[in-house]
C-alpha cells in the first residue's frame, strides 16, 4: 500500500516555527546562565620551590605544615636531624595528614592511615604513597622544591 505524504498545513508550519523559536530563545537564555554557574578554572600554581622553614625552627622528631603551590605540605625533622618534605594531602580522601612523634610516622586522622617518613603506605586505606619533595639549605632557609 502506498502511503500518502503528510500534508503540511499553514497552522502546522507556524506552530513548528513558534516551537523552534521558543527553543532557540530558551537556549539563548540558559546558555550564559549555565556557563556562569560552572566555575572558571583557576590556573594551577606554577610554584616550584618555597622557603618552608628556618634552620633550627624545628626540633628533632617534629614537623610543620606549610603551604606549597596552594596545597598543604609537611616538613619533618627526623630524630637524626635529617629533613624530609612530602605532600600533606592523603591519597585516600584528600585529608591533611600530620606527623606523629610517638610512632615516628605520618598519620591521617580521617581514616587512621599511616605512612612512613618516605611517604610509603604502612597501613590503612590509601591507594598510593605520598609524593616527596627535595629539601635543600640556603643560608638560614630550608628550601623545599618539586623533584625535576
Amino acid at each position: 500500500m502506498k502511503e500518502e505524504p503528510e500534508q503540511t498545513t499553514r497552522r502546522n508550519f507556524i506552530g513548528w516555527g513558534l516551537i523552534t523559536s521558543l527553543a532557540a530563545f530558551l537556549g539563548m537564555l540558559f546558555y550564559p546562565i549555565v556557563r556562569f554557574i560552572i566555575p572558571p578554572t583557576v590556573a594551577e600554581s606554577s610554584q616550584n620551590s618555597v622557603v618552608a622553614a628556618k634552620v633550627n625552627e624545628l626540633q628533632p622528631n617534629s614537623a610543620k605544615i606549610f603551604p606549597f603551590a596552594n596545597k598543604p605540605a609537611i616538613l619533618i625533622r627526623l630524630a637524626s636531624g635529617e629533613y624530609r618534605a612530602l605532600t600533606a594531602v592523603c591519597t585516600h580522601l584528600q585529608c591533611t595528614v600530620q606527623y606523629r612523634s610517638d610512632f615516628n610516622a605520618i598519620w591521617c586522622a580521617c581514616h587512621n592511615a599511616k605512612f612512613d617518613v618516605n611517604g610509603a603506605v604502612i597501613s590503612g586505606p590509601p591507594p598510593a604513597p605520598l609524593d616527596t619533595f627535595e629539601v635543600n639549605m640556603s643560608g638560614d632557609d630550608i628550601i623545599v622544591s618539586k623533584r625535576a
Binding site: 550564559p32 546562565i33 556557563r35 556562569f36 560552572i38 566555575p39 572558571p40
Partner: peptide, 9 residues
C-alpha cells in the same frame, strides 16, 4: 573578568 558571562549577569 574571570567568570564566563559574569559581566553580563
Amino acid at each position: 573578568t574571570s567568570v564566563r558571562f559574569g559581566w553580563l549577569i
